[in-house]
């Protein structure tokens, strides 16, 4: 397996009225093709910034990011993005929102229709294709957003706290949905979260980021079998990972 995404000394400093704010970095990291990597850290540690820089949506202040050896210096279009809020448009149906992904790329939506329906069915939205986003619950909206991010079969998926705005029960179910989607077609996933057990359940590797300015504190490879169902999540190994990571944040006084 070769490296798909590589970060070399990536650093981001924002200008603000009270002088420059050091958001994150310098960070060195490489992510293999098909790997699920979580960025785990408290709010405001710059982990979302990192994801936006990988997508080419924000330029790094220092350092460079390469995807398959090519320097990222403009927005990448071979990615799928999921945000904390669903960011669906009210004037389209659920199916229409998913198809928006390919329509904006100038592709023929008719050719992707079957795939879109298949994706929506796999997350239990098969009966809601014609509904408008505002007629759905928050969890269903976010599932629609997942499908939209996957429709064009991107090699890289970026998720910025996609479960952060949902209630606890919905989160648990969506984690399983996400794991299933990823196992169905493994992609390189950068997953931003502040939930320790969520990171351990989903990731091949957890990148622990310290409070502002964000720095990579440790990288932990999670060596557990997929799917990490309820039994796996109760196993001593799983809980061991959770405890190790919790200890790091306790040292920093975050929890």
């Amino acid at each position: 397996m070769c490296d798909s995404i590589t970060l070399y000394g990536v650093k981001k400093v924002y200008d603000s009225r009270n002088g420059p704010v050091h958001a994150i970095g310098p960070a060195d990291l490489s992510i293999r093709k098909g790997e699920f990597v979580s960025f785990l850290g408290p709010s405001g540690c710059g982990k979302s910034t990192l994801v936006l820089m990988v997508a080419g949506l924000l330029p790094p202040t220092e350092g460079e990011i390469r995807i398959d050896g090519v320097v990222v210096n403009e927005p990448r279009t071979d990615v799928g993005i999921v945000f904390q809020t669903p960011v669906l448009v009210d004037w389209r149906s659920v199916l229409g929102n998913v198809l928006l992904q390919v329509e904006l790329r100038g592709l023929d939506p008719a050719q992707y229709r079957a795939h879109a329906v298949e994706l929506l069915e796999s997350v239990g939205l098969g009966e809601f294709l014609k509904q408008r986003p505002y007629e759905l619950s928050g969890g269903m909206q976010q599932r629609t957003a997942f499908c939209r991010a996957l429709l064009h079969d991107p090699p890289i998926v970026l998720m910025d706290e996609p479960l952060g705005a949902l209630d606890a029960m919905t989160r648990t179910r969506l984690r399983d949905d996400l794991e299933k989607l990823w196992l169905g077609s493994p992609k390189s996933v950068l997953f931003v979260t502040h939930d320790i057990s969520e990171a351990v359940q989903l990731s091949d590797r957890v990148v622990v980021i310290t409070p502002r300015p964000g720095r990579v504190e440790r990288e932990i490879t999670v060596d557990l079998p997929h799917p990490r169902d309820f039994d796996v999540r109760q196993s001593p190994e799983f809980l061991g990972y959770v405890k190790d990571i919790s200890d790091i944040f306790m040292q920093y006084g975050v929890i």
Partner: peptide, 23 residues
């Protein structure tokens, strides 16, 4: 965030306007 999404699709400005910005 919608702007980020729009940018990440690499949509032509006309397509992006008709399908997202105008509505």
């Amino acid at each position: 965030e919608l702007t980020y999404f729009l940018t990440s699709t690499g949509a032509r400005s006309k397509t992006g306007f008709l399908k997202v910005r105008m509505p």
